[in-house]
């Protein structure tokens, strides 16, 4: 494994020199390497068994037919090439749409809020808002869904009642908490704080010297942002949005608890296959769906990392 092919690990070990007695030089080196690597073996074995094997299973079975041969048919199925399998295609489309909406809107709002916070002159206020966003970014799942049902459920939700009292009942204006936009609205409760949390350091990195230089050269506030601020921040903002995309794309608990599993997005579809609410023989589809989700997530994380590398050229 990685440990044994690592030349430095052996040289950094001083104690092991006594093992070389009586053995040939190469065997001694090998024994040393194994000895050095041995203490991390339990960790590696655990990770391989409980993380590696399940992930490998997903990848392998996504391309396996019921008879155990290699096949593309599972992938074709989830891409919705036939009328019967159209639901999976719709699922992906909805999931991607939900992820994009809950990345872009909270991304923009979070950036504005982070800027408003970063211009504050009270360090205590900054500390409190940072801690609060850290807490709120973790508020996903069942609990959040129940909180929003109490807030925006038809007729009985608190805010629904408030708005109805002034003649603006959202449910009479096309809003449905248990459909796409309702779910998106609830996701924003953890996506906005997540954005604030990851974009705030970028604002701290905007050097005062740049603004002073721009002002010294006669630039207006708008021109400073147009030519310096926004171009420098763009990779950071885009990168963070990809992270939000991943978070919105993989969320399951909130949508399941809010809609009772009725919204057709990919995580919910996987969940219902796993719980056996499907026709027999669809098991392979769960692998293919899970595989596709992992691929999409990996792509968005890679883009995030690349954009962050680009960000660090200007912002530290």
């Amino acid at each position: 494994m990685t440990v044994q092919s690592d030349p430095h690990s052996a040289t950094s070990l001083d104690v092991a020199s006594r093992d070389t007695k009586g053995t040939s030089r190469t065997t001694g080196a090998l024994v040393r390497k194994i000895r050095t690597g041995a203490p991390v073996v339990p960790f590696l074995v655990y990770v391989i068994l409980v993380l590696g094997v399940p992930t490998g299973t997903i990848v392998a079975f996504a391309f396996r037919s019921n008879t155990g041969r290699f096949t593309w048919s599972n992938i074709h199925t989830i891409l919705g090439t036939t009328a019967q399998t159209l639901e999976f295609r719709t699922g992906f489309e909805n999931s991607l749409k939900l992820a994009v909406v809950t990345a872009v809107i909270p991304g923009v709002l979070g950036t504005i809020i982070a800027y408003a916070i970063s211009t504050s002159e009270h360090p205590a206020f900054k500390r409190i808002t940072a801690a609060t966003s850290g807490v709120l970014a973790q508020f996903g799942g069942v609990n959040l869904a129940f909180m929003f049902i109490a807030t925006l459920a038809a007729t009985n939700g608190l805010v629904t009642k408030w708005l109805a009292a002034i003649g603006l009942d959202p449910w009479n204006h096309g809003f449905d908490l248990y459909k796409f936009w309702g779910v998106a609205f609830v996701y924003m409760y953890f996506q906005i704080p997540l954005m604030v949390l990851i974009i705030t350091p970028a604002f701290a990195g905007l050097r005062p010297a740049w603004r002073e230089a721009a002002e010294g050269l006669g630039a207006s506030r708008w021109r400073f942002w147009r030519h310096v601020g926004i171009p420098v921040l763009t990779p950071a903002i885009l990168g963070s949005m990809f992270l939000l995309f991943g978070s919105g794309f993989s969320a399951y608990a909130t949508a399941e608890a809010l809609t009772g599993g009725t919204i057709s997005i990919t995580p919910i579809q996987i969940g219902s296959i796993l719980q056996g609410n499907v026709i027999a023989g669809e098991q392979n589809i769960a692998y293919a769906l899970a595989f596709a989700m992992i691929v999409i997530l990996l792509v968005s994380v890679v883009i995030y990392v690349l954009l962050r590398r680009r960000t660090s050229r200007w912002l530290l």
Binding site: V50, T55, I270, Y287, A290
Partner: peptide, 16 residues
């Protein structure tokens, strides 16, 4: 474990 969506991971766990 943070990157892999929990729902996808659970597919692998339950089947393997």
């Amino acid at each position: 474990p943070i990157i892999i969506p929990p729902i996808a991971y659970s597919v692998g766990v339950l089947e393997s």
